[in-house]
């Protein structure tokens, strides 16, 4: 019995902020700022209506989704060959290089914001999906390499050799034989790339003219004050893509955290 109470208390703590966000998104600003209500007394869809009708909000979502998708594709296609090389070959400094990749994740994004801003401004990449998609690679490529390396090392080398003996060319072997074997790993790596790119704020805001959804949300302040309801509705909508992706890879996420070494 007491175990159950602890479980429910934990669940409440976990779900409360989420519930409050959803709760807010269906309220008007007057209700939000004057009273504390556990559920919307005067439920309204106004906040969602604004988002879906205003091009600024709608385009923000599209912009973010497109740089996230672009980044995921770039990260995975760059990380796959790299991870294969790290897993299968010995070369000078391979261990150091492998660790160095990870150090890219150790620096705060703010460190990279200024050089990226300056570089992109001078080559005309500023304020485009490419700007953000490429900048996010600095976190996501190392992560994807580490995850994929674990999964690739789980595939016996003998399969590679058998394919060589059978006469497969390397590209054909890689696409037809090898990639299906690490499909889980590719899925998990893609999920992590997606997630980090989707929630990243600083680079997305610095490298664009506030086009990304995360930066639009941070500046939805008007003369009449902060539009709490609108912000909450936007927050709920930003949760959805992440939730969808988690649903698809839910059985493999734990493996991903273990970097494939299960």
């Amino acid at each position: 019995m007491s175990r159950r109470i602890i479980f429910y208390a934990y669940l409440v703590c976990l779900m409360l902020p989420l519930y409050w966000l959803i709760n807010l998104s269906f309220k008007g600003n007057v209700e939000i700022s004057t009273t504390m209500t556990l559920w919307p007394i005067e439920p309204t869809l106004r906040n969602y209506a604004i988002i879906f009708t205003s091009p600024e909000w709608f385009d923000g979502f599209l912009f973010s989704l497109s740089y996230v998708a672009l980044n995921t594709i770039i990260s995975i296609s760059v990380a796959l060959p790299a991870a294969y090389a790290f897993s299968r070959y010995c070369f000078l400094g391979d261990k150091h290089l492998f660790f160095w990749l990870l150090t890219n994740r150790m620096a705060p994004a703010a460190v990279f914001a200024l050089p990226y801003f300056n570089l992109y401004s001078s080559i005309g990449l500023f304020d485009s999906v490419w700007a953000v998609a490429l900048a996010h690679c600095i976190f996501n490529v190392p992560l994807a390499v580490w995850i994929l390396e674990g999964f690739i090392s789980g595939v016996p080398r003998e399969i590679d050799e058998t394919a060589r003996i059978d006469g497969y060319s390397f590209p054909r072997f890689f696409v037809r034989i090898f990639m299906p074997l690490i499909a889980n790993g590719i899925g998990v790596a893609a999920f992590f790339c997606f997630m980090f790119s989707w929630v990243e704020l600083l680079l997305a805001r610095t490298l664009t003219n506030s086009k990304a959804i995360s930066s639009i949300m941070t500046r939805s302040v008007s003369a009449s004050g902060i539009d709490w309801g609108l912000l909450a509705a936007a927050g709920v909508l930003t949760l959805i893509p992440g939730a969808l992706v988690i649903w698809f890879v839910r059985n493999h996420i734990a493996k991903g955290f273990a970097l494939g070494r299960v």
Partner: peptide
């Protein structure tokens, strides 16, 4: 090895 006429079977069961 690709150019040789070789077949190999390993101790582990290696299939695709």
């Amino acid at each position: 090895v690709k150019k040789r006429s070789v077949a190999m079977v390993y101790q582990q069961f290696i299939n695709y």
